[in-house]
């Protein structure tokens, strides 16, 4: 659900050492950060290493490993998190971004991965 609303349109920007965009949790509620098992970002067909991904909400930034043991913060319903990829940066112009999130949901008899792909432009 909400798959096609995960990546926020027009949110691609350059950051120190890489790029970022805004992402939303594809779910009807929020989740504690420890239940976000993986966030995978693919840029123009290249899967970015897990170690290069950072997740930031309300002024706090986490590696994906740090999120796994974070029990005092959450990705709220509809909240736009900044997804940062430290890949050295992207060229200006259009890029195809795929954003995949794997959650551990207590009541589901499976572990869902949901993804969204959008073309985003990086300003020169």
């Amino acid at each position: 659900m909400m798959d096609n609303k995960m990546i926020v349109e027009g949110s691609l920007q350059s950051v120190d050492g890489g790029f970022s965009f805004l992402g939303r949790l594809p779910y009807y509620r929020g989740l504690g950060l420890s239940m976000i098992e993986d966030i995978q970002v693919t840029v123009d067909g290249d899967v970015q290493p897990r170690e290069s991904v950072r997740f930031a909400v309300r002024g706090k930034t986490y590696t994906l490993d740090e999120m796994e043991t974070c029990y005092d913060n959450r990705w709220n319903f509809g909240e736009k998190a900044q997804i940062i990829v430290l890949n050295g940066g992207l060229s200006a112009g259009n890029h195809t971004i795929t954003f995949a999130v794997r959650n551990r949901v207590s009541y589901l008899p499976f572990v869902p991965t949901t993804k969204d792909t959008k073309e985003l432009a990086l300003a020169a």
Binding site: Y28, R29, G30, R74, N76
Partner: peptide, 13 residues
């Protein structure tokens, strides 16, 4: 309501 849909923060913070 679903508490954690309507209210940001619940239950973690």
């Amino acid at each position: 309501i679903i508490g954690e849909q309507t209210f940001w923060g619940w239950p973690e913070y």
